[in-house]
């Protein structure tokens, strides 16, 4: 494991008082807490800050940490054999232990010795995972493989990093940003405590054609100026196959034409499938090149037309 300098993480001296430690933690928590900060690196930084604070605010843990001595941050490190004596007399190998787990293990050992075998149930930890799926997968439903490694207590109470692989069925009708709960799939409980839960944050990968709002879909629909002026029937792709859409005459750019029930499914109560709508947002696109004939026709139109889209300027 790599040594972590918790005093350096919090930016305090080794002689800092508990008030100074608390003050430093609060300042950093405001800066990096994932529920407060928009800094993408904030979560990892806060985890480090929280870990340092959890150890240094507790007098016994701090004493155990100080006992490890000074080492450069990031240096390969193994606690001395006699340090394990603090952990309720258990023999620890530390081979699969992360530095962050060291003091959780210390607490476990201390709790065990304090309880004199009463083995108080300790609930497993909750975890959060994010998964990214395509719009097509969200439309049809998909089974995702969730792979993650979590610290767990073994039978001796020692913390090990255990890989998990869970298959989770994401049903059709899920929305972008939807959160879901997998009960009992978090960290293992200890001494009969309940297992923790796993929270899954589902997001959609950007789609090349569609944008999604709740259960509605939006697609840009490019039209030629004459299709927009005269009206037309055009083919529009949907997630369930292309449909024909009648574009009314005198359509402007930016209008939203609704294609009913061609959005995302709403089947989250499993009794019947309803769908959101698909909105085609019109865009009027001029040709990048004009043939001689086209130019002549457009010039004739320009001469004979009295239409002025800028009357409101006057």
């Amino acid at each position: 494991m790599k040594f972590k300098d918790y005093y350096e993480v919090l930016g305090v001296a080794r002689s800092a008082t508990i008030d100074e430690i608390k003050k430093a933690y609060r300042k950093l928590a405001h800066q990096y807490h994932p529920d407060v900060s928009k800094d993408p690196a904030g979560e990892a930084k806060f985890k480090e800050v929280g870990e340092a604070y959890a150890t240094l605010k507790d007098a016994e843990k701090r004493a155990a940490y100080d006992e490890l001595g000074r080492h450069p941050a990031g240096e390969e490190f193994k606690p001395p054999p006699n340090w394990a004596g603090n952990q309720g007399g258990q023999e620890y190998s530390f081979d699969e232990t992360d530095f962050a787990d060291l003091f959780a293990g210390f607490t476990k050992g201390r709790q065990n010795s304090q309880q004199q075998g009463r083995n108080r149930p300790i609930p497993g930890q909750d975890y959060e995972l994010a998964t990214n799926i395509t719009l097509e997968d969200a439309y049809a439903g998909i089974t995702v493989d969730l792979n993650f490694i979590v610290p767990e207590h073994d039978q001796q109470g020692q913390i090990k990093r255990v890989p998990h692989n869970i298959k989770a069925r994401i049903p059709m009708g899920v929305t972008n940003g939807q959160k879901m709960l997998l009960r009992g799939k978090g960290g293992k409980g200890f001494h009969g405590g309940p297992d923790g839960n796993l929270y899954l944050n589902i997001s959609f990968s950007p789609h090349k054609l569609f944008r999604v709002v709740d259960h509605d879909l939006f697609i840009d629909l490019p039209l030629t100026p004459w299709e927009a002026a005269l009206g037309a029937t055009v083919e529009v792709p949907t997630l369930a196959g292309a449909v024909h859409l009648k574009v009314p005459a005198r359509t402007s750019g930016g209008q939203k034409l609704r294609i009913s029930k061609r959005g995302m499914p709403k089947n989250n109560l499993a009794d019947k499938t309803e769908h959101g709508d698909l909105f085609a947002v019109t865009q009027i696109v001029s040709p990048t090149t004009l043939s001689e004939k086209e130019r002549e026709l457009l010039q004739a139109l320009a001469i004979s037309s009295t239409f002025n889209p800028r009357t409101h300027f006057n």
Binding site: N165, K167, Q178
Partner: peptide, 15 residues
């Protein structure tokens, strides 16, 4: 590594 399979619980207005 053991493969576990599970169903999800929705966190939304309907449930």
């Amino acid at each position: 590594m053991q493969m576990e399979s599970t169903e999800l619980i929705w966190l939304d207005e309907q449930h």
